[in-house]
Simulated scan of single mutants.
Amino acid sequence: MYLILFDVDGTLVDSQNTILHGLEVGFAAVGLTMPDRQTALSIVGRSLEEAFLDLVGSAHTDKVPAMAAAYRQSKIARREQGLDLDPLYPGAREAIDRLHRRDELLLGIATGKALRGVRHMLDKHDLHGRFATIQTADTSPSKPHPDMVLQAMAETGVEPGRTLVIGDTGFDMAMAKAAGAQAIGVTWGYHDHSRLVENGADRIIQAFSDLDVALSEILKFDKETI
């Protein structure tokens, strides 16, 4: 059995606009200036408090709880209004369904999102039942700490050498390597190619259509039957 863990933001769904809106709310709540778009998106993948701390620095540590609370409250309110529906990236659903049909594969999620946000994504995109394990910021330290991958392996009984993480950030790659797993970086997310490579990506893909070949090379699958 093999375990394939997907990141969410920047990998399965394009959530940059809703993340930026939440960050803007958080900065406004404490009267601080929002950083530029590239800087703000550089923290995607981190848990919320750690993301805000990365952006404001140690001088404003005391403001982080209020910023995170404002972000969460905004998210909850917008979802109740039917907003914040982050679209799946092209090919994501097809890849998930195709891999889910393989008897030798288990799929999972490892994300800096809260479980509430993951459930919202699964509900809106009708993806329930595909993932054997879901690891979130509610129960694990922030990426790149390896705990999410370690917990997923413990839950599924899959060893590190048969586990692979797919993500768009250096945090995902570093998390996978720290857990002894392999990693595929995707270029359509929020970190550039160099950060993925620097943090240990075994392969880099440009689109979900490239995933089958990458998996066949790393996990020795027959790509014709993926």
Rank of each mutant, 00 (worst) to 15 (best):
A51S: 07
L106I: 06
A66P: 01
D103A: 15
I19C: 00
L105Y: 08
K63W: 07
A77G: 09
Y89L: 00
L107N: 08
I109N: 14
I134A: 10
L115H: 14
T136L: 14
V25H: 13
L41T: 06
L32W: 11
A59Y: 08
R102G: 03
P144C: 10
L83G: 02
L41H: 01
V64L: 03
G22N: 00
R116N: 15
A92K: 04
T139Y: 15
A114L: 15
A68N: 00
A132C: 15
E80S: 03
D54F: 11
R72L: 03
Q81G: 06
P141W: 09
I96E: 00
M121R: 10
L32E: 12
Q38T: 13
D7W: 06
K143R: 09
R46F: 04
V64F: 02
L106V: 10
A40C: 11
V30M: 11
P141I: 04
G129Q: 02
M67G: 10
A132R: 15
T136N: 12
S42A: 13
P90D: 02
L107W: 01
R130K: 14
F27M: 13
L105M: 10
S47A: 11
T111A: 10
L5I: 14
L55F: 05
T33P: 09
R119E: 15
L122D: 07
A66H: 02
A110P: 11
T136D: 05
D126Q: 14
I96M: 01
S74G: 08
G22A: 00
G108Y: 05
